[in-house]
Design a protein around this nucleic acid. Structure first.
Lengths: 346, 346
DNA sequence: AAGGGGTGTGACATCGTTCCCACACGGGAT
DNA sequence: ATCCCGTGTGGGAACGATGTCACACCCCTT
């Protein structure tokens, strides 16, 4: 006679499909069929299985399921900086859409570091995610993930247009509209603050700026185009330098919300009146822009939708891996506010 | 003679440990030992294995590993609303700390909905995460996860203090300090805008408010305590009502950044001068508060650190599941700005 | 009575990894 | 010569779920 001894963990072990099977008095296969709804299961048996599963608090192990099925229901989302409301909102949109489509979202903040980005990408490969949405810092991620046959959607900016899907906004049009708005008000010395012009985002906003100047018959002054760093402090410093000069511009177009904040702070510190002394228009409408006084004219992008659209695109790509890659361009909208007016009369 | 035919997928199949083993001419066991560093492996063999793995672009399958080892290296993070800078920053902190400790982060935005929260919790159980950080909306999540033996850290607010870990800020002290600041300036009609008083956060901020009034020998006027909804619009509406009344308060303490925004907007719309007509102090220092004019006095919490600390706590809990539960209280700091001054003389 | 179809169930291999165990080899001690 | 140890390697059984396949019914038809 043997004494059945429970291990100390038997009570605390997570119930598996086997436990449910025993409780319901059927085989594991039957439990699987009853719970997933694939294959036969008599209604009374199904009933019994469901009850047993509920009683035990059984939750199928996604790991085991994915391992067996070789397809997972989670997506990776890689954003540059959650503290920037732009990325936060984008992530929020991605989160909502992912949830709606039954994906779990693995999110990493890559802090604008290429290293963190690669690390995160590798983790996503290891997790066998079904796809990845990324605001890329280089072409490395897309290439790497592509080599592992993981669908990628680049969002906000593109490094691998043509070979991977992208969801971006009308950067060129937006920048052109913003600059043209200034031109129409009579400005001719219009500065551009921009972080990079290598990425599609920066490049196109730059082009839009140039186009608007061209249309207005304004010669481009290279001194008025500032390639600032990526943080508020740097942008502020550069803005202080520029605005202290005697031949300062009468208007500034800041190519994103961070740069805009730097310029805005510099303007405040120098005691310049907006828009009487200087006009300001920003690309990307951050919450503070409609709260400060005067409010800041901005090109507004539907950032939440940007994230949601990216996940939607990713889902479609997962469904149809072989379809041609698509770049979706979302519209932007100029929101005129108080920070833009006629240039000062000299 | 047979023609070897590659299946269409042979090139695209992800390399497994078996492929590495064959390429290196050793067994799977040896590859595993060489790559993980657990167990013997001659240095030349290790070398060969490493090279083979790199060449094939082999990335171990986390699913399979977790399934075998029964412990995962990912944590779940459940936040209420990524569009609120408070939660975004908290998530950013959690993300950084998770990365540093070698966890991948599964994040879900629960949109303040109990249903989304439960759904997300179930997904996390299915994923067999090692632990969960949550800004809870009810005690349900903690209870549910506890029943599955998944460690939980409640952050910002607590529903299961005593049985689960928590990381919160000094709500009572912060609220008392903020209110006392107003009292010290001479205010006696001080309104409180608060969303809920059922949750620890709201309850304690309320208590702090009461304490400061008590210390200042001020009778509490229930009409001045507004239980507003959770959005800007509602808070604004309530503020408009209150501030239009003839016996309006001379100061408002808004218990979070959303309520503060509503009140701030209402003040602006009514054309009241701050702080001459009315003073405003907020709990939770959102970016806009230091940008608007006049700047807004606020109780600042180190939100990023809140998220980071929560993950750190979770990691410790995962290491020592049986230790007593701990509630960590982070300090807050009153940042006096321009929105608070002496009450108007009647 | 034999056959056949529909219905329902269970055995078992499988996914990719880990890790316990067995074992092989060489050298040193007895 | 035997034993034992240290070093290194491979075999094979798990982990939990799925799904194919075989098969056992029962009822109906011929």
């Amino acid at each position: 006679m043997t004494i059945e001894r429970r291990t100390p963990f038997s009570r605390s072990r997570r119930p598996t499909i086997k436990d449910v099977a025993e409780a319901a008095g059927v085989s594991r296969s039957t439990v699987s069929r009853a719970l997933t709804g694939r294959g036969y299961a008599a209604s009374d048996v199904r009933e019994r299985v469901l009850r047993a599963a509920a009683e035990l608090g059984y939750v199928p192990d996604v790991m085991a399921r994915t391992l067996k099925q070789q397809v997972s229901r989670s997506v990776g989302v890689l954003v540059s900086d959650l503290r920037n409301p732009f990325y936060a909102e984008l992530a929020a949109g991605a989160s909502r859409e992912a949830r709606e489509r039954g994906y779990t979202m693995v999110l990493a903040d890559t802090s604008l570091s290429a290293e963190a980005e690669s690390e995160a990408a590798e983790a996503l490969v290891a997790l066998r995610v079904a796809g990845v949405v990324v605001t890329p810092n280089s072409s490395a991620v897309s290439t790497y993930l592509a080599s592992h046959h993981i669908p990628v959607v680049e969002v906000d900016r593109q490094f691998a247009a043509g070979s991977t899907d992208g969801v971006v906004v009308g950067n060129r049009v937006g920048a052109r509209t913003a600059t043209a708005h200034l031109v129409a008000l009579g400005h001719r010395r219009i500065a551009l603050f921009i972080d990079e012009t290598d990425w599609t985002t920066g490049y196109e906003r730059y082009q839009g700026y140039l186009e608007a100047l061209g249309t207005g018959d304004i010669k481009v002054d290279p001194d008025l185009v500032v390639s600032s760093g990526w943080d508020v402090a740097d942008s502020r410093r550069r803005a202080l330098d520029m605005l202290r000069a005697p031949d300062r511009p009468t208007a500034v177009f800041a190519a994103n919300n961070v740069l805009a904040e730097g310029v805005w702070r510099a303007i405040g510190e120098l005691g310049l009146r907006v828009p009487d002394d200087i006009s300001l228009v920003a690309f990307d409408d951050a919450p503070w822009m409609s709260m400060v006084s005067p409010t800041v004219t901005a090109v507004s992008q539907d950032t939440f939708n940007l994230g949601a659209t990216a996940v939607r695109r990713l889902d479609q790509r997962i469904e149809m891996p072989e379809a041609d890659s698509v770049t979706t361009v979302l519209n932007v909208r100029l929101v005129p506010r108080e920070s833009t007016g006629s240039p000062p009369v000299i």
